[in-house]
Write a protein that binds this DNA or RNA. Sequence first.
DNA 1: CTTGGGACCTGGCTGC
DNA 2: TGCAGCCAGGTCCCAA
Length: 269
Amino acid sequence: MPELPEVETIKSELLPHIIGRRFTGVIVYDAKPVRQPSVEEFRRKLVGQKITSLERRGKYLIFHLSSGDVLVTHLKMSGALLLNPKQTDRHARVIFHLDNGSQLVFTDRRRLGAVWLLENEQAVTGKLGPEPLTPKFTAETLAKRLQSHQAPIKAVLLDQAFLAGIGNMYADETLFAARIHPLRKANSLSPQEIRNLHKAIVDILRSAIDSKGASVDTYKRPDGQLGTAHFNFCVAHRGGKPCPVCGTAIQRLAIRNRGSCFCPNCQNP
DNA sequence: CTTGGGACCTGGCTGC
DNA sequence: TGCAGCCAGGTCCCAA
């Protein structure tokens, strides 16, 4: 599942291969992911445009084009952007042909992913919360934003309008690193716990980026390689297995219909 | 405003 | 071995 570290990895590995390239053709095998505009307009407007820059916002990728328009992608659960894959599988949804002969393949097994071609990205990314890996995201910022939430901290961390880019696995890892129980009410955290949580968010995300993301499910980098961040996971996707710190069995429960793994000993309620 | 539940979607897994 | 049904989770939509 591509979360911030996975999307950041895709961005940085795609970047050198696509900057300055021009779209020469766009083949839509599945219209479902093309959210805006119509498939016909999507193709017509895209062909001929040059990619001038590529940025990540939360879990979105934003391709800036020479026309001023932006191509925005979200990979959701099972999406990937593959560069010149050896074989195009049956899950290829859109193929972008570039002027150097390369193919950029948007593939997505579960068909939840989406692409937009827009005048600007605000309609899609406008409601996102702060970027956790920018200097503006401080423990003080976090503390202030937590005050207005009494939902479980795990649910709040998953809210993209609260903080952009964290998904289920990194929320679990972050709370474990900060020793905070996922059901704690967000506005009940002490100043020290908030400082710990802030540090955990930054550390966990940075280290996952260093490991090129986590390949627990279908996540692949543009060249088809896997990431290794999941080898460092302490609790995420480890329900029933021993806690690496104390050996207690990792517990699993549903919060907001999402599986949450935590150590009942290290993360006290 | 916040909160929580259902829907979307497909393939891997479970259990009969 | 076959197959129905469950489950995974990012985000949108809706109701309270």
